[in-house]
Design a protein around this nucleic acid. Structure first.
Lengths: 193, 193
DNA sequence: TTAAGATGGAACAAACAGGTCGGAAATTCG
DNA sequence: CGAATTTCCGACCTGTTTGTTCCATCTTAA
């Protein structure tokens, strides 16, 4: 193998699929190595533990999510549309990136420090984006809020509410309607009358 | 619990979902009991082993499959249409009943005796149905075959070919086209010219 | 040929998972 | 109500699994 980084990437992609199907706990190093057609111990040349692989996988998905959210925001110009795109894409992607999702919600993973770090980091970044969106909208006179920071936090709280598994236990159509309702709520409480 | 049978059924339904997601091996008695909100040892009051639960689950799915195939055949009258319905429904249902599917194809389950029994029984029953279909069609003068038994076996062989995982690694549309092609092949080799 | 980069077989300690057992709780019945 | 029977479960046992380490062995490039 000429390029070590390249092989790490391959491990991440392969492990990602297995993790997303069986979860962290039920995925064994043996499966990962078999999927890669390598000896189990060989994996340890690239990663020092199963945890470290999972960490890389989750980070990978987090990066994907970030990238897609960024483009979603850039696609449109007006702050309300940016916000709408952000929320929409965030919801759709969250459902797809199952490892990241599990990392954030699986109570059995609570004690892993790196999970906490990723959770915290994502929270911080998201808040920054929302704050900026609100702030810009406010400056342009489209929004009308007292404090960008706290408004952003309020929106984030609402987004977190959409993350909990119960929210998804509904039909697809219903989900879209609920999304529209949520957006409408945010906007009507935010838009200048 | 007034009715022991009723509770067994509930265990089967719950275990079925977990088995279908994680497979026989990765599903633990602990999970099953947790999903049922019962103590692990309580399950052993209803089933004497994990294997026995899986056996019941697979049998349950096999019965479902049989029931649907039966109605599918009864829905139409002419032998060619019966055959067409049979094959069509069999394909669609097979994809859904994942425990049954795994029981039939997972090489890791090869050494379980009850799996062998279920496989053998299903084979026998299917052959009987096909034989009858061919026989009746022949009698009515719609089909034209020498030996119903061997023709039925030939058709069954073809159906088995559609079961192997590779067959499904295609897009839905493609699947339908292939199905049509298979049907057309069977009929054109079978129908009186 | 040698040294550094990769690989995988074998071994191991710790965790896990299927199953048992004795008896507690709940329910039924007289 | 109380005894009998059904249902449930916590604690435990035991063989297996699994993450990880070690080290001998290949492979590659200089």
């Amino acid at each position: 193998m000429v390029n070590k980084e390249e092989y790490r990437r391959r491990i991440i992609l392969t492990a990602s699929k297995i993790f997303s199907h069986y979860g962290f706990r039920k995925t064994t190093m043996d499966e990962i190595s078999r999927a890669l057609k390598k000896g189990k111990s060989s994996i340890y040349y690239y990663f020092s533990s199963k945890e470290e692989i999972f960490e890389a996988v989750v980070l990978h998905e987090a990066n994907q999510l970030r990238a897609r959210l960024t483009t979603a925001i850039k696609e449109v110009d007006s702050p309300p549309e940016k916000l709408r795109n952000y929320i929409y894409v965030r919801m759709k992607e969250f459902a797809k990136l199952s490892n990241y999702y599990n990392a954030v919600f699986d109570k059995n993973l609570d004690h892993y420090e790196f999970i906490e770090k990723i959770r915290a980091r994502y929270d911080r970044e998201e808040l920054a984006i929302l704050r900026l969106l609100v702030y810009v909208g406010n400056n342009r006179g489209v929004f009308d809020v007292e404090d960008s920071e706290y408004t952003a936090m309020a929106i984030q709280t609402m987004l977190k509410g959409m993350e909990v598994p119960l929210f998804w236990r509904k039909r697809e159509v219903d989900i879209n309607q609920r999304l529209e309702a949520i957006l409408s709520l945010i906007f009507n409480g935010i838009l200048r009358k």
